[in-house]
Design a binder for these strands. Structure first.
Lengths: 193, 193
DNA sequence: AATGTAGGCCAACGCCTGTTGACAGTCCAG
DNA sequence: CTGGACTGTCAACAGGCGTTGGCCTACATT
């Protein structure tokens, strides 16, 4: 132990370094994807030696896992009024994506790495499908309806934050909510077409 | 020149090899993305020496460019009846994607490679935006409306063919057209919300 | 003040990558 | 039948990668 004799969570002298590594890693992974984001480059950004990364995060895979640990927190969303759930969801996702660069990293890497793809899927399974079951007309359709919602918001994230299509980047927040909100609303609550 | 003295397009003895390389490259790029799809692995699949790849396609980048050369052919789509354009587009994209594995490759690589992302964007610019201009109420909104359509179909392709979310894979073709068709229709033709 | 320990740097390892050039067999035109 | 172009193999290169272990430094405890 270092510093205080308190147990709980000791303040390590290396915390600043750990944070610097994590920040640099998020930026590099988000910008370059998994393979092209080298540990050497991340270490250079964080102004430390590559071996420090191994000391604190064991391996490149461990570093990535630590860098993209994030919880979208869908269960905390207000479900009422039910006819606003579409707009609420879209708005929530936009905020999430613009505050957390690691989501872009997760998506870039998920395109080629099954483990990252799995992490994204777990959000669908554990948060979006339950929500669809809660607000949708038929619990049995929940997976399909949730999948459509996922494809809607991830499609926007793809064109706007990953591929950066100018026409998609140019959309402003309200416009997106106005267009996608009703779409998600329909996927979740409308009767089967 | 070999074979016939005809100019036009000579039949080279190596055409079979070239094709084998291209096929193997498409599979590997689609499955693994750009970095993880090594020339050695592609050559092994095609049962030839890695140096042949360089001889026929100059470099890895050249091979990729040749492997994903494809034209979605949107301009040939029937625009009438106008109220069916949404379903027509979605249906066309589904066919395209299931017939051409290179689209998955292009998307996997586009997630990290700007050049591939550009190629995808050119489809939006040269084919989807003009179409939106043609059928939409206000030509000035064409880029925004086209971008929303792109995010719709690419979102589905992402969850279904790249990330392979089971709930998205489980959707059948008609279901997808029934759900996404009206969405695209609205993005293209509905008044601004 | 002495001492153990955590933080940090350095040099090196083995591996895999894209790419190259020299060499051998095969086919066809003259 | 002979020359030259084409197809293909082999071995090697230079460089970058993740990862490791040894070493010095500086701090916190005793």
């Amino acid at each position: 132990m270092t510093g205080t004799t308190e147990n709980q969570q000791a303040v390590r002298r290396s915390d600043a370094t750990r944070a610097a590594i994590l920040t640099a890693a998020r930026e590099r992974f988000a910008a370059d994807g998994y393979e092209k984001a080298t540990i050497r480059a991340i270490a250079r950004d964080a102004k430390i030696d590559p071996s420090m990364v191994m000391r604190y995060y064991d391996s490149k895979a461990g570093l990535f896992a630590a860098a993209v640990a994030i919880d979208p927190g869908l269960p905390d969303l207000p479900v009422e009024p039910r006819e606003a759930i579409g707009r609420t969801l879209v708005s929530h996702f936009l905020t999430l994506w613009e505050e957390n660069g690691e989501l872009t990293a997760l998506m870039r890497v998920g395109a080629t790495d099954p483990a990252a793809a799995d992490r994204m899927q777990s959000v669908l399974r554990e948060q979006l499908i339950p929500l669809a079951r809660q607000v949708g007309p038929d619990p049995e359709q929940a997976p399909a309806r949730a999948a459509l919602c996922a494809s809607t918001v991830l499609g926007l994230a793809l064109t706007r934050y990953v591929l950066r299509f100018p026409a998609s980047v140019a959309l402003d927040r309200d416009e997106i909510v106005d267009w996608l909100g009703p779409t998600v609303q329909r996927y979740l609550t409308a009767p089967t077409p």
